[in-house]
């Protein structure tokens, strides 16, 4: 992600109500995961709990995170949780939705699994007098962490060992 992209992403995240943690060091990554109270990664989330997901990428134009259903239960958890923590590799950045769609077109099932969701901020409604309320049926908070891919890989390797 370039500095200019990061600036625009920051603006979109603010508009959408997404909280953003830019993670550069291992200790920050550990802290992010501790915050998410990661016990059973993306397996079963009960209502009111936090969910932790590995998201697949970001779209700069809208500030959407891309969450594929290739990891079973991730999407369900992302709707059920009170707070959704999503960790994303900072090199998985698409400029527009069109860029993402044209890339994924031919091997759609292989790349995106049975289902995929683009998420722009917490769940919301404006059905009562057009007043915006965050946390309609889904999470009240969406916290996105972006980290260098090698840092995420390192953490995953350690987790396996």
């Amino acid at each position: 992600m370039t500095g200019e992209q990061a600036e625009r992403l920051k603006r979109r995240f603010r508009e959408n109500g997404t909280e953003w943690r830019q993670i550069d060091e291992r200790v920050d990554l550990t802290r992010f995961i501790m915050m998410a109270k990661l016990e059973k990664p993306y397996a079963h989330v009960h209502p009111g709990e936090t969910a932790f997901t590995f998201a697949d990428g970001l779209i700069v134009e809208t500030g959407a995170i891309i969450l594929s259903g290739s990891r079973p239960g991730a999407r369900r958890a992302a709707y059920l949780a009170e707070t959704h923590f999503a960790l994303i590799s900072e090199n998985a950045v698409f400029e527009t939705l069109g860029d993402f769609l044209s890339l994924t077109r031919p091997p759609w099932h292989k790349l995106c699994g049975p289902a995929l969701t683009l998420i722009c901020g917490p769940s919301r409604t404006a059905d009562i007098e057009k007043t915006l309320v965050m946390g309609a049926h889904g999470p009240r908070r969406l916290i996105v962490g972006t980290a260098p891919p090698e840092l995420i890989k390192e953490m995953l390797d350690e987790g396996r060992a």
């Binding site: 979109r12 508009e15 959408n16 809208t62 500030g63 959407a64 259903g69 079973p72 239960g73 991730a74 999407r75 369900r76 939705l97 759609w108 099932h109 995106c112 699994g113 049975p114 289902a115 995929l116 969701t117 683009l118 998420i119 722009c120 901020g121 917490p122 769940s123 919301r124 404006a126 889904g138």
Partner: peptide, 30 residues
Amino acid sequence: ALRLLPVNGTGQRSTAYVSFISSPAPEMSG
């Protein structure tokens, strides 16, 4: 379609969620 629907519908750049469903869910996850 996904650019213009939220802009014209609710005055949003994008809605909070857009889902693409292509098959039933695996491993009882949906």
